[in-house]
C-alpha cells in the first residue's frame, strides 16, 4: 500500500508500490499525450522559437480546455489572441512537470526536494482535472458522490474504476500539499 507523503528530517518522503507507480505513470503519460497531441511539426521555426502559435485554437475536448482555459470570460477573440501568444509555453511547462514526475517514479521510496514536490503537485493536479472531466464532475455534489467511492471491491466498471483512481490521486496530492505546507512553515 502507498504511504501518504510527509515532511520530516529527510524532506518530503512518500512510498508507492510498483503497481501504484505503474498506474500513476500511465495517467501522467495520458495527460502528456493529450497536451502533445496537436503540436505541429511543419511550423514556422522562428515563431516556435519565440513561443508563438498562430494556429492555436480553443480546444474542443473539455478536459484539454480545462487544462488550457480561455483567459477572458466573454471575449473569444481576445482569448484566442492570448492563446496564440501563450498557450505553447503553458503546454510546455505542464509537459515538463508531468514528465519529471513520471521519471521520478523510478523507486518505491520517494524523497522529494521542494522543487520536485512543486512539480509533482502540479502534475497530480492536471491528472485529477482530466480524470474529473472524464468522470463528469461538474459540481460539489458530483465530487462528493465520487469521493464516497473508496472500496476497491466496488470497481465493477470503467467509471467506478476511474472514480477509485481519482480518489487515490486526490489522496496522494492532498498529502503532498500538506507536506509542502509543513515544509514551508518549517522554513519560515
Amino acid at each position: 500500500m502507498a504511504k501518504a507523503f510527509k515532511y520530516g528530517l529527510k524532506g518530503i518522503t512518500g512510498h508507492l508500490e510498483p503497481a501504484e507507480r505503474d498506474l500513476l505513470r500511465g495517467l501522467l503519460d495520458d495527460v502528456i499525450s493529450m497536451l502533445e497531441s496537436d503540436v505541429r511539426e511543419n511550423e514556422d521555426p522562428l515563431a516556435a522559437l519565440i513561443g508563438l502559435d498562430m494556429d492555436a485554437k480553443k480546444p474542443s475536448d473539455r478536459a484539454l480546455l480545462r487544462l488550457l482555459p480561455n483567459v477572458m470570460k466573454d471575449d473569444d477573440a481576445g482569448s484566442l489572441e492570448f492563446r496564440q501568444l501563450t498557450e505553447r509555453s503553458v503546454r510546455e511547462s505542464k509537459i515538463g512537470a508531468l514528465k519529471a514526475t513520471a521519471l521520478g517514479l523510478d523507486k518505491n521510496d520517494l524523497v522529494l526536494t521542494g522543487e520536485e514536490a512543486a512539480r509533482w503537485s502540479m502534475a497530480l493536479n492536471d491528472v485529477r482535472l482530466v480524470l474529473a472531466e472524464r468522470l463528469d464532475i461538474r459540481d460539489e455534489a458530483d465530487a462528493d458522490h465520487i469521493h464516497s467511492m473508496q472500496d476497491w471491491s466496488q470497481a465493477e466498471d470503467v467509471e467506478s474504476y476511474l472514480a477509485l483512481v481519482y480518489n487515490f490521486t486526490t489522496w496522494l496530492q492532498e498529502s503532498l500539499v500538506q507536506s509542502m505546507i509543513s515544509a514551508r512553515q518549517a522554513q519560515s
Binding site: 512543486a118 503537485s121 493536479n125 485529477r128 482535472l129 474529473a132 464532475i137 461538474r138 459540481d139 460539489e140 458530483d142 465530487a143 486526490t170 496530492q173 492532498e174 500539499v177 500538506q178 509542502m180 505546507i181 514551508r184
Partner: peptide, 14 residues
C-alpha cells in the same frame, strides 16, 4: 469542484 482547497491556498502563498 476538483482543485484541493489546500492546493489553491498553497499556490496563492508560493
Amino acid at each position: 469542484p476538483v482543485n484541493l482547497m489546500s492546493y489553491v491556498s498553497y499556490v496563492f502563498q508560493s
